[in-house]
């Protein structure tokens, strides 16, 4: 095999899929909508298989606690998420994949893309290997 070659074709990288959405709209979903939603996640799992390293739904933003230091190094504790936005972090997946195209192909299966208020952000995980 020729090439820079220290990383072969079979090498995998880690990615985080961050799931964002409007918590109010998630709360307003009916049981039936949740069942369809869960089925979407199940389809994602079935397709992604062992590439899913971890994945969780997070409790809603009002349950969050944020910590931040000021110029003097004093730590301030606030009740709520780090960034106050209408669309907050609602869950995540940690995946292993060969490249961004593979992650995007899998991410398209996620049910958050069936709604206008929610969406996904894909972030590569730093590899210090």
């Amino acid at each position: 095999m020729e090439g820079a070659g220290t990383r072969g074709v079979g090498d995998m990288a880690k990615y985080m899929i961050l799931i964002y959405g409007d918590a109010e709209q998630w709360d307003a979903m009916t049981d039936e909508q949740w069942r369809a939603h869960d089925a979407g996640h199940a389809a994602f799992h079935a397709e992604a298989g062992s590439r899913v390293l971890d994945g969780r739904q997070l409790e809603s933003a009002p349950t969050a606690t944020s910590l931040r230091a000021d110029a003097l190094g004093k730590i301030h504790i606030t009740d709520g998420p780090f960034l106050e936005t209408k669309e907050g972090l609602g869950g995540y997946y940690l995946l292993e994949a060969a490249d961004l195209d593979e992650v995007m192909r899998l991410a398209r299966l996620l049910p958050e893309l069936n709604y206008m208020h929610s969406g996904l952000e894909i972030r590569p995980v730093v590899d210090r290997g």
Binding site: A13, A98, D99, L100, D101, R105, I122, P124
Partner: peptide, 14 residues
């Protein structure tokens, strides 16, 4: 490089 945008002609589905 960091996000691994592949250096490849996409497959038929894409």
């Amino acid at each position: 490089a960091a996000a691994r945008i592949p250096y490849r002609v996409p497959g038929p589905d894409q």
